[in-house]
Design a protein around this nucleic acid. Structure first.
Length: 536
RNA sequence: GGCCCCGUCAUCUAACGGUUAGGAUACGGCCCUUUCAAGGCCGCGAUACGGGUUCGAAUCCCGUCGGGGUCACCA
């Protein structure tokens, strides 16, 4: 076992909690947990323009939902910790001091170039197809006098890092070995913005050092700024942590996972009825695998086999279809009581939110077929359950066993909690929009349908549905009758299914009738018979 | 375009330099069946290409091609 690792996930509160944040949280947390270390959450809120007030709370909630709570982080949402504040906006003096230090040491300088000049510069460089695109270091050569004049004139400035221009910058990456960068191809990055806030580059180094971070496990997209970060550590005279750049989660077209092409919000997954443990498991499958082809595992099992070096760095495509399957596996593994509880909680989550799940116009729907289809369905499901939510919740409180008998009937049919919307409503209402067609499936006729309904009515009337053997009794009687009528059981039960469930697809019929009870079952059959009588 | 990273079935992945390249999802078929599922069985399907090194390469080296990331006072 290695030394205890101090690792962190450092999201920026600029929007919905991102699936990539959860991905990084999982691997960072695993690193901490397998070494007896600590997993910290740091809020990188140094961009006041993109700041979203509620985002931080949502990030916390989402991580907690996934069981990826930090060991240390802002005390408002969790345990706090000894190296706070854990919110960068509360650490401004440290960044200023660090920047001043570098300026004093001649390793950074004030830059007074206007946004306009920078933009023009960039345009010229692009027009000239210059190999080097970026700041030209103009203000490096400002004399102390010029700096004083600028300051006296109150000219806004940023602080730039004086990046080493000669020689190679070699940095180790845990997965890739030595990464070589050419010094003079790097540019003088901004450390402190004109509003006094630090950029990611400065804040990240100052904080990781101050917080004792030993391993920086972050997304691959940071590799290009690695030489800058490494040189910053050198400039401060600090030891650099171990860098491990994880692969990027990808869209189907292999581009970096994005909102337009994939659901990226963790809230989306929760709202769509995915179980947190399934999503977490799925994320663990991205770039990592357990021995013996084990694909379904607890976090504890993940830890037992975790080895950061075994991460596969080819960028994995986030395949919602496989998550869909995995979620179904998790649902089937839940015991009935637990699934019941999850469903009630899920309804609670949807309560009063039907308006959020209105149908989307074609042009706002995802392109990809599975996702498009799923998005449409899950919106419908969410509306259905949202409408039913209050009723389900109160019934559950009044009678904790109300839903329970239904669970075994639907469990193996679910891939997401939302999908329960296809099966549950029939247990709460008998106001169905019957259509003539649903009573006459293949190999069935109107006459046959009416006869089947009457026969089954007689059977149900005769059998004691509260008897433990009721299912077998119904089954036997129905088989006997259908045989006598010269019908297969399927077509024979078709009209009955329509009568009882109001649909052609439903949970198992006998069990459904038993759950509904004799009175309700007979009533529905009578309703159907009346409906068909009117059809002529 | 410059720099950097990556490259095993459509997808997630396995394979001390020696396997008929394995598993899972998806897809197709069959079985089971009370609709839909779930489950069982079978099938389809990959080492990007070209050179080396080696008795032997998916595995090591080089090149090509392909994909991706990044080039902000965003992270």
């Amino acid at each position: 076992m290695t030394n205890p690792a101090r690792v962190r996930v450092a999201p920026s509160p600029t929007g919905d909690p991102h699936v990539g944040t959860a991905y990084m949280a999982l691997f960072n947390k695993a690193m901490a947990d397998t070494t007896g270390g600590k997993f910290l959450l740091r809020i990188e809120d140094t961009d006041r323009a993109r700041y979203v007030a509620d985002s931080e709370r949502q990030i916390f909630e989402a991580l907690k939902w996934l069981g990826l709570d930090p060991d240390e982080g802002p005390p408002e949402h969790g345990p706090g910790g000894p190296v706070g504040p854990y919110r960068q906006s509360e650490r401004l003096p440290m960044y200023r001091k660090a920047a001043e230090e570098l300026i004093a040491a001649g390793k950074a300088y004030r830059c007074y170039c206007s946004e306009d000049r920078l933009e023009t510069l960039r345009k010229i460089q692009q027009a000239e197809k210059s190999k080097l695109i970026g700041y030209d270091g103009l203000c490096r050569s400002l004399t102390p006098d010029q700096v004083r004049q600028n300051e006296a004139a109150g000219k806004p400035s940023v602080v730039r890092f004086k990046l080493r221009k000669e020689g190679d910058i070699d940095v180790q990456d845990l997965f890739r070995g030595t990464l070589k960068f050419i010094g003079n191809e790097q540019q003088d990055a901004v450390l402190l913005k004109s509003d006094g806030y630090p950029t990611y580059h400065l804040a990240n180094i100052v904080d990781d050092h101050a917080m004792g971070i030993t391993h920086v496990i972050r997304a691959e997209e940071w590799i290009p700024s690695l030489p800058l970060h490494f040189e910053l550590y050198r400039a401060f005279g600090w030891e650099a942590p171990v860098f491990a750049h994880m692969p990027l989660l990808r869209n189907k077209d292999k581009s970096k996972i994005s909102k337009r092409k994939n659901p990226t919000s963790l809230l989306w997954y929760r709202d769509a009825g995915f179980l947190p443990e399934a999503l977490r498991n799925f994320l663990g499958l991205m770039g990592f695998s357990l021995p013996n082809d084990q694909e379904i595992f607890t976090y504890a099992e993940f830890l037992q086999n975790f080895d950061l070096k075994k991460v596969n760095i080819g960028g994995p495509i986030f395949d919602l279809q496989k998550l869909h399957w995995l979620n179904g596996e998790y649902i089937r593994r839940l015991d009935d009581r637990e699934l019941e509880r999850r469903l009630v909680d899920y309804c609670k989550l949807l309560l009063g939110r039907e308006h959020e799940f209105a149908d989307l116009p074609e042009d706002q729907l995802p392109q990809e077929t599975f996702l498009k289809d799923f998005e449409q369905k899950r919106r419908r499901w969410s509306r259905t359950l949202g409408t039913l939510a209050a009723e389900i919740m109160t019934s559950y409180e009044v009678n904790p066993n109300l839903l329970l008998p239904i669970i075994p009937l639907i469990k193996e049919r679910l891939h997401t909690l939302a999908e329960a919307a296809d099966y549950i409503p029939m247990f709460f209402t008998n106001e169905f929009a019957y259509t003539r067609e649903m009573f006459i499936p293949k190999k069935q006729t109107m006459e046959g349908a009416i006869l089947a309904l009457k026969e089954v009515r007689t059977i149900v009337d005769r059998v004691d549905l509260t008897d433990p053997a009721a299912k077998e009794a119904l089954d036997a009687a129905c088989r006997e009758t259908s045989e006598a009528m010269g019908q297969k059981l399927g077509p024979f039960l078709g009209p009955v299914r329509a009568a009882i469930t109001g649909a052609t697809v439903s949970p198992p019929l006998m069990e459904s009738m038993i759950v509904l009870g004799k009175d309700e079952t007979l009533k529905r059959i009578d309703n159907a018979l009346n409906f068909l009588a009117l059809q002529g």
